[in-house]
Write a protein that binds this DNA or RNA. Structure first.
Length: 283
DNA sequence: AATCGTTCCTGATAGC
DNA sequence: TGCTATCAGGAACGAT
């Protein structure tokens, strides 16, 4: 379940390894990997033909991240958008062996002039899109401010929260308001800030917004410096797992003692998502 | 118009 | 031990 820190690590790794490289081949293992006009595909050859036409012979210029979206801009007028959703994984390899277990989940193979870029996905929620500049701009506008890059002061955060009477955690998870935070980081951030996930977003006092801002930056940056969160599947494109899971303070700690006050951590559901919090520290 | 629940998918796990 | 039911969650979409 890559969230902002994991996607950022993937971006940095790929920026270093694949920018400037030329695409020399595309193999489609699962046609539903491609989304075009909001539709997924069934015909493998059709998808392969489409991707070859738009990708082969072009160079990857740079890789941009906004929220959990990755945009690979090519030296034609197109961008290739990747969304990894729950179990998507981008991997680079000098060579690969299709007989190993993980190749059950290979969805797409992009051959570059010096190595391979592979897209695996167990649960097939992830997808790619080929976007014109206009479509790319539309996507970027649809997303809220990036939690790490664009929310760069408590005032920016305040502007977003004061318009929302919904529960704070819902707003943190709403990608059209704040882009990049997922379920795990949301709980960790709220715990660190000492604010209840259920508080109406517009009820926060200035001091609380300031704590929330600080907690958001700290947890996201900690996630990045720890190499990301590997609860199960996440690995960076070099196959390395993260260590942030060892630093979790509330997520998946139901019934354990709060690290600050000793109260029992509660687990509840908030719009269908598991939510962990300390009822005494988070008000 | 804003908000909510459902859906996609499949491996892991809980419970009998 | 082995089976079945439930859970996990990002975000698009339809329903309210």
């Amino acid at each position: 379940m890559p969230e902002l820190p994991e996607v950022e690590i993937i971006r940095r790794t790929l920026q270093e390894k694949v920018s400037g490289k030329k695409i020399v081949g595309v193999s489609v293992y699962d046609p539903s990997v491609l989304v075009l006009n909001k539709k997924r595909f069934k015909d493998r050859e059709k998808v392969e033909k489409f991707l070859k036409k738009h990708l082969i012979g072009f160079q990857i210029n740079q890789i941009l991240r906004k929220g959990k979206y990755l945009f690979f801009s090519l030296n034609n007028q197109f961008d290739v958008l990747f969304h990894l959703k729950m179990t998507g994984k981008l991997s680079i390899r000098d060579f690969f062996n299709e007989t190993t277990d993980e190749f059950k989940y290979l969805r797409l193979l992009i051959s570059l002039d010096s190595f391979e870029l592979l897209f695996f996905d167990k649960r097939k929620f992830g997808y790619i899109e080929v976007l014109s500049k206009e479509e790319k701009e539309k996507k970027l506008e649809m997303l809220g401010k990036d939690a790490l890059l664009e929310i760069n002061s408590p005032f920016v955060l305040e502007e977003i929260l004061k318009k929302e009477k919904r529960a704070l955690k819902k707003v943190l998870l709403d990608q059209t308001r704040i882009a990049g935070i997922g379920n795990v980081y949301a709980d960790e951030i709220l715990y660190k800030a000492g604010i209840s996930p259920l508080r109406p977003a517009n009820s926060l006092k200035k001091a609380e917004i300031s704590r929330l801002y600080k907690a958001m930056k700290e947890k996201l940056n900690l996630g990045i410096s720890a190499g990301g969160l590997t609860l199960r599947d996440y690995e960076n494109p070099l196959g390395e797992k993260g260590k942030f899971q060892e630093m979790l303070e509330v997520y998946r700690r139901k019934d354990e003692g709060c690290k600050k006050c000793g109260s029992r951590i509660l687990k509840t559901k908030l719009s269908g998502r598991s939510t962990y919090f300390c009822p005494s520290c988070q008000r």
